[in-house]
Simulated scan of single mutants.
Amino acid sequence: MGLENLIRDGGFMTTQLQRVVNWSRRSSVWPMPFATACCGIELMATASSRYDLARFGAEVMRFSPRQADLLIVAGRVSIKMMPVLQRIYEQMTEPKWVVSMGACASTGGLFDAYATVQGVDQFLPVDVYVPGCPPRPETLIEGIMAIQRVIDADGIRMDQGKREPLNIVVEPNYDVKDQPVELSVGNT
C-alpha cells in the first residue's frame, strides 16, 4: 500500500537529507492570508471542500506570521496598511514566500488612486503573481504548486544572504465560456 510495503523486514532505504528536507517543506507550506477584498472570498473557496487545498499540504491557515511561511496578499492594499503588511512579512520564518493574488494586489487593479498601492511588489519580494479579478481557486492552487515545485527542486536563490523573488506568473488554466442564457433588457 505505502512505502512500508516496499521495504522488507530489516530492510532500509537511502536518500539524501536535502531531498527529505525539501519534501517536508513542500508538503507543509503554511499560508498566512492577508485578504482585504473580493479575492479573499476566492481564497476561502480554495480552502473549502470543493477545491481542497489540503491535498497540497497548505490547508493550515496561520494567522500568526511566526508560524507561517507563505504570505498570500489577496486584494487591494492601502498606503496606510502597507507598513503593517511589511511588518508581517518581516516576522515570518525563513524561507518565506509571497503570492500576489488578483489584479489589485499585483497592479492596483481599477483602484488608480493615491491611497491604493499600485502593486505590492514595490514593497515586498513577490514570488508568484496569480492573475484575475478575482482569480479562480484553481489558479491560486496552481500558484501554490509553482512554489512547491521550486521548493522540491531546491531552487532557492540567495544573494548576499537574501533570497531573490521568483517572479513567476501563473497562466489561467481554464477557458471562460459564454453565459448559457441570453439576456434581454426591456424586451418582453
Rank of each mutant, 00 (worst) to 15 (best):
E138W: 02
D154V: 04
Q118M: 10
G108E: 02
I144S: 02
A146W: 00
V169Y: 09
Y114C: 12
G102R: 10
R87T: 13
V150H: 07
G161Y: 10
V169L: 09
I88V: 15
F123A: 12
I168T: 01
K162G: 09
P131N: 09
R149S: 09
Y89A: 06
R157P: 02
I151L: 09
Q122R: 14
Q160L: 07
A103M: 15
I144N: 01
P95R: 13
T93C: 13
P125V: 05
E94V: 08
Y89S: 05
Y174N: 12
V130D: 00
D178Q: 09
P137A: 14
G102S: 13
D154F: 08
G108D: 03
R149I: 04
L124H: 03
R136C: 12
V181P: 02
T139D: 05
A105I: 03
V99G: 00
P172K: 08
P135E: 08
E142H: 02
D178I: 06
Q118R: 13
G143A: 04
V150T: 08
Q179L: 10
N167W: 01
D112A: 15
V128P: 00
V126D: 01
Q179H: 09
G143D: 09
Q91R: 11
D152M: 13
P135G: 05
K162P: 05
A153N: 06
F111D: 14
G143H: 05
G102M: 11
V98F: 03
